[in-house]
Nucleic acid binder design. Structure first.
Length: 814
DNA sequence: GAGTTTGAAACT
DNA sequence: CAGTTTCAAACTC
């Protein structure tokens, strides 16, 4: 805004002066250009730099969030410079700020990657006139920073500007000193700066709030889960830095904000702040103690956040420690650099978007609600990518779908690490598929995978894995591999559903155990094989060929089986949406939103024991079931029948009793049928839904009472098919249901809420609606929601497209 | 842990 | 597609 006006004024003035002499000069020649150029220079510095920078910044941000983060850093750095500039010339300051910001960004990035690299480079770009160019370069640098490789580019670029840097550094030093007193005020002297400061403050406040929210909701976990390592770091830093940021970043941020025009940059400031601190230290040793303290806090906090999730406490401790001088800071910075590198590596794979999103979220505090959404979406997207993994595990492939849902929910929930577990399982499964590495390798990889999703997950499954995960977690290469594996797995899932099972093996290896004696674990009799997992030590099978060593045989056998039945390795339990796609009506029928693909054929177990696959899968029997005397606690065949199906069921029931038929036709619910059919039915809850829900609810409560176990088990149970033994004692069916409910509700309505109380809440919700299954058309809200959720979850689980769509959505927001 | 029951998978 | 056999999990004791 200012720039254009200034331009106009300058033009007017020039015109006046020129008017008399102007014609003469013009006739003479090039002088004119000189004046114009001279004016233009100031104008350019002022107007051009700010406007373009703003656009560029915003643009950059839009393109990649990481930039924003870095920018913030830059902005902070630029603040001192800008202050100096302001002292010199308010107009210029803007352009300079931009340039400085850019340079600072570059410096920050350099520092991150190469602590040793001098901050000087930062100043290099600042050339006032070509602030835009400088900005662009740094931006590019920032992008590059995301990747380790970028460092080289940075270095090259830096070299050129180094000479120039000296001047800015001096100014920076001055500014820094001012800031030490309180740089904010010094900057405020300038009107523009003040306005910026206000904006920044508001932004900062928002950011603080956001950070607080994050911290309260165990932000780290969430971010970690989504962005793997990187995102968490950034977020953590942001959260931690928020406080520090308010102090240090305010002045600096303000100018940048104007220049960048992007409020989103603030979140970046956190990271940038840290970097800035380093830079200041390097360039300006006299950096103010206060800033150092802040930087230390931020650094330490970020560090802690990375290592441990306990950010707040750690931050406090660190604050107390902050008195420690640079050495500590440098360490923290270096760590950050490492982290960034890791993050960068990861980012390049998939998470780039995620990490960026996370960072953006931090930034977005105030302005970027949309960004926040993006973050969420990203999370979901991450989850989706991960969810892809979940695929399917074990017999109850349906579980895989549930696990997927769980993942998503977990990711969103953040606070609850439980979800992570689900994610893990899926990831692990992918792991198995891709590498099929030996058990140890798999475990490590799984752990890594879990880390990416969330370390918390490890806790449930195996503390050991969790530990290993963190260690591995540090390894960027592993992450990269992970990402690559995810991609491959994702593709594999889409192309080869069977693969899912294999992946699943990774997780389930520990969980599932077979006891095959004659099948050599190469037939569907073998649970491991059916689940796509390799047999592991816990298995007591004989002559087992279901091992990585016999991969060829396994694959060949699989192909054979698939040739006979393409869906042989597909999940047996399908959610409503999936079922709808595949089966069609049946899915709708199922109250639980999931049905057994083929249906059961129970004759003596009344579908009340694990002999029944429907019951084992935690789903109610459907029309497709040929069971007799069905009493499936999750839903009786009769009950499940939708309106359209009712007739068919009625026919089936006719076989049992003509009277039942009539009752069925008249009563869609077929409660009478149920009662008639099953003598014991009376004992059971009347409505099928009620019956189904009931067990689920009870289970949920019981699980909730157990707390950890319940969520984990529920999730794991899906995974569980593998672990039947350990879980056998547990009521298997309930868990699956649990899962289903959990999955469904969270996704659709409020994943976060579910996250918070995922299991219990969902269970409750579902239970309440289930109390009576109303026929499809009238399905209660809960059902509808569940269905909707199912739809989302299903695509994620079964097919990539849906999730991709989800991912796309966030991207669109960007 | 051994034996029985059960139902899916495999086979004819 | 139906019937039978095989198989291993689930269950019982």
């Amino acid at each position: 805004m200012d720039t254009p006006e200034r331009k106009q004024i300058g033009n007017v003035i020039s015109n006046f002066e020129d008017s008399p002499v102007f014609s003469y000069i013009n006739s003479l020649s090039p002088i004119k250009p000189v004046k114009s150029t001279h004016i233009s220079q100031t104008i350019n510095s002022l107007s051009f730099s700010p406007v373009p920078s703003a656009f560029t910044s915003s643009y950059v941000i839009s393109q990649k969030q990481p930039r924003l983060l870095r920018r913030h850093c830059f902005s902070e750095l630029s603040k001192p410079e800008s202050s100096s500039d302001s002292g010199n010339e308010g107009n210029r300051s803007v352009g300079i700020l931009d340039s400085v910001d850019v340079s600072s960004c570059s410096a920050d990035t350099q520092e991150i990657f190469d602590p040793g690299s001098s901050i000087q480079e930062v100043t290099i770009d600042p050339p006032n006139e070509n602030s835009e160019l400088a900005i662009e370069l740094p931006r590019t640098m920032e992008y590059d920073c995301g990747s380790p490789v970028s460092d080289l580019t940075f270095h090259d670029i830096k070299i050129d500007p180094v000479a120039e840097v000296d001047v800015p550094s001096a100014s920076l030093a001055q500014f820094v000193q001012d800031i030490s007193v309180k740089s904010h005020h010094s900057f405020e002297t300038e009107v523009e700066l003040v306005g910026l400061c206000q904006l920044d403050q508001t932004k900062e406040e928002k950011g603080c709030d956001w950070e607080n929210l994050i911290s309260e909701a165990s932000n780290l976990l969430l971010f970690d889960s989504f962005t793997d390592v990187e995102a968490p770091k950034g977020q953590n830093q942001n959260a931690v830095d928020s406080e520090t940021r308010s102090f240090t970043s305010l002045p600096l941020n303000l100018p940048q904000d104007k220049i960048d025009d992007s409020p989103t940059t603030k979140p970046i400031d956190l990271i940038g702040s840290c970097e800035h601190h380093e830079v200041q230290e390097l360039s300006n040793q006299p950096t103010k103690a206060a800033e150092q303290k802040e930087s230390n806090h931020t650094h330490s906090s970020t560090f802690h956040g990375e290592q441990g999730d306990n950010d707040p406490k750690e931050e406090m401790d660190e604050k107390a420690r902050n008195s420690t001088p640079f050495s500590c800071e440098h360490h923290s910075m270096r760590r950050r650099c490492l982290v960034f590198e890791k993050a960068g590596a990861n980012k390049k794979s998939f998470e780039d978007g995620l990490s960026s999103s996370s960072s953006i979220s931090c930034q977005s505090d105030g302005k970027f609600t949309s960004d926040d959404k993006q973050l969420v979406t990203f999370k979901s997207g991450c989850g989706s990518s991960r969810s892809m993994l979940p695929g399917i595990g074990l017999h109850l492939n349906a579980l895989a779908a549930t696990t997927k849902d769980c993942r998503v929910v977990k990711h969103e929930a953040l606070a609850s690490g439980r979800q992570l577990i689900s994610v893990r399982s899926s990831i692990a499964s992918y792991h198995c598929l891709l590498s099929e590495e030996k058990s140890l390798a798999k475990k490590s990889t799984e752990a890594e995978m879990c880390n990416a999703d969330n370390e918390v997950l490890v806790m449930q499954d195996t503390s050991q894995s969790a530990f290993g995960v963190r260690e591995e977690f540090n390894q960027s290469s592993l992450k990269k591999k992970r990402h690559a594996n995810h991609l491959l797995t994702f593709l594999a899932e889409n192309l080869f559903p069977d693969v899912r099972r294999v992946e699943h093996d990774g997780e389930n290896e520990g969980c599932k155990r077979c006891n095959c004696k004659k099948s050599k674990c190469l037939k569907l009799y073998c649970e491991c094989f059916a689940a796509g997992i390799y047999c592991v030590e816990p298995c007591s099978c004989r002559e087992c060929f279901n091992k990585p060593v016999h991969e060829d045989t396994v694959l060949a056998t699989r192909k054979q089986i698939e040739s006979r039945n393409p869906l042989a390795f597909a999940p047996k339990v399908i959610r409503t949406s999936e079922s709808v796609a595949e089966i069609g009506e049946e899915s709708n029928e199922t109250p639980a939103s999931a049905r057994h693909k083929k249906g059961c054929n129970c004759k003596k177990s009344s579908c009340l024991k694990k002999y029944c696959e429907c019951y084992q899968g935690g789903v109610g029997c459907s029309i497709s079931c040929r069971c007799k005397g069905c009493k499936n606690a999750f839903g009786r065949k009769d009950e499940s029948t939708p309106i359209g199906v009712e007739e068919a069921e009625a026919e089936e029931e006719k076989t049992e009793s003509c009277e039942k038929k009539i009752a069925d036709e008249r009563l869609p619910n077929n409660e009478a049928q149920k009662e008639e059919e099953q003598d014991s039915d009376h004992v059971l809850p009347m409505t099928p839904s009620f019956q189904i829900r009931r067990p689920s609810v009870q289970l949920l409560f019981s699980s909730s009472g157990k707390l950890q176990e319940s969520p984990v088990l529920s999730i794991g149970s899906y995974a569980q098919p593998s672990k039947s033994q350990t879980l056998q004692s547990d009521f298997v069916p309930p868990l699956p249901k649990f899962k289903l409910h959990f999955q469904i509700s969270p996704e659709d309505e409020a994943p976060e809420v579910l996250k918070g109380n995922c299991l219990p809440v969902t269970g409750m919700k579902t239970a309440s609606p289930n109390s009576k299954r109303v026929r499809p058309p009238h399905n209660e809200l809960g059902f509808r929601k569940s269905r909707k959720l199912v739809l989302q979850s299903i695509p994620s689980s079964t097919s990539l497209t849906p999730r991709n769509g989800n991912n796309d959505v966030p991207i669109k927001f960007k």
